[in-house]
Amino acid sequence: MGVDSIHNTAFIESNSYDPWLNLAVEEYLLNSFAGESIVLYLWQNENTVVIGRNQNAWEECRLDNLERDNGKLARRLSGGGAVFHDLGNLNFTFLLPKREYNLHRQLSVIVDAVKEIGIEAHFSGRNDILAEGRKFSGNAFYHGQYASYHHGTILIDVDTGKLSEYLNVSKAKIESKGVKSVVSRVVNLRELKPDLTIEKMKKAMYMGFIEEYGHIDNVLDFERLAELADVTKLFDKYSSKEWLLGRSPEFNFRISNRFPWGGIELLFTSRKGTVVDVAIYSDSMDVDFIEHLRQGLTGVDFSKPSILEALHNLPKCVERDDIIDWLHRTDLN
């Protein structure tokens, strides 16, 4: 057990399959509970594609197919790539004060829960958990001012045929992963444990949370939270076309590339030699870097020296350095 400090803990389980409501409650928990409490939130979405904070919905999702089948598009706060949710998938969110955020501890809950039901698992790469070399859980992260969350999927019995029906996976991403298709990279845990159910997985996660954090002080009422005015306001945001689809940028220069940390597409709008706007689409896990990049490039001269200078002025990180190296080799004319 990893208990090393005294803190309040809470558990909440959604009784809704609506992604917009579930994400609204998630953000409400981040803002209203996670500054002082460690919360485990379990939830499910029905027939939904969830895209990362900075992704282009039109590029990532086959929206016509999703609409035809009465599915929903959702956009989360965290970075990373697009995922498909149905009722064969269980979502989890750990919400906690920034000082308590510890990826290893949070992952231990999932890995230990899966081991408890008889499946060996381990963390791999930037955001995946694997069993027998195949992915059953993708994870993403968001850091607010006082609190953070770490959320992800657990594939129990997902209809993997829908992955290729609703998701556009770029050739560059597939090649970078060294595999032929998105379906070949994933595994449903029920393939490895035929008697596994969503309810058994929920119980294993609940017990794994207690094992790691020592106790659960409060069980929160989802229905009560869902009726709050603050949650309604967040629901309106998550269900809005502006949030889901964003704007269609008018750009006059486009470049894109894929790196080990994710893909990026830069759409520059320049007037009289100055960058007046830059739209950035990315499945990078680091949403803060993407926002810093957007701010740093806006207002500079549209020239390679000025853009490189703006990049050098950003905080040093792997993503920044990779983009600088790439732009040194890229023609901006």
Rank of each mutant, 00 (worst) to 15 (best):
N70W: 02
G71Y: 11
L73S: 04
A74E: 01
R75M: 03
R76N: 05
L77Y: 07
S78P: 09
S78W: 09
G79R: 13
A82F: 13
A82Y: 14
V83M: 13
H85L: 07
L87T: 14
L87F: 02
G88R: 02
L90G: 01
N91L: 11
F92C: 06
T93V: 12
T93A: 15
T93M: 13
F94Y: 13
F94S: 10
F94T: 13
L95W: 02
L95C: 03
L96V: 12
L96D: 02
P97T: 09
K98M: 05
R99P: 00
E100D: 10
N102V: 11
L103T: 15
R105M: 08
Q106G: 05
S108T: 15
V111M: 13
V111S: 10
D112Q: 12
A113H: 07
K115F: 03
K115S: 13
K115T: 10
E116K: 14
E116V: 00
I117Y: 03
G118V: 09
G118S: 05
I119A: 07
H122F: 10
H122I: 02
F123C: 01
S124V: 03
S124A: 08
G125R: 04
R126Q: 09
R126D: 02
N127M: 08
N127D: 06
I129K: 04
L130C: 03
L130Q: 07
L130I: 09
A131H: 07
A131N: 08
E132K: 15
S137H: 01
N139E: 03
N139S: 12
A140V: 12
F141D: 00
G144R: 02
Q145C: 00
Q145T: 09
A147Y: 03
A147F: 03
S148V: 10
Y149N: 08
H150Y: 13
H150N: 11
H151P: 10
G152Y: 14
T153E: 12
I154N: 11
I156A: 06
D157K: 03
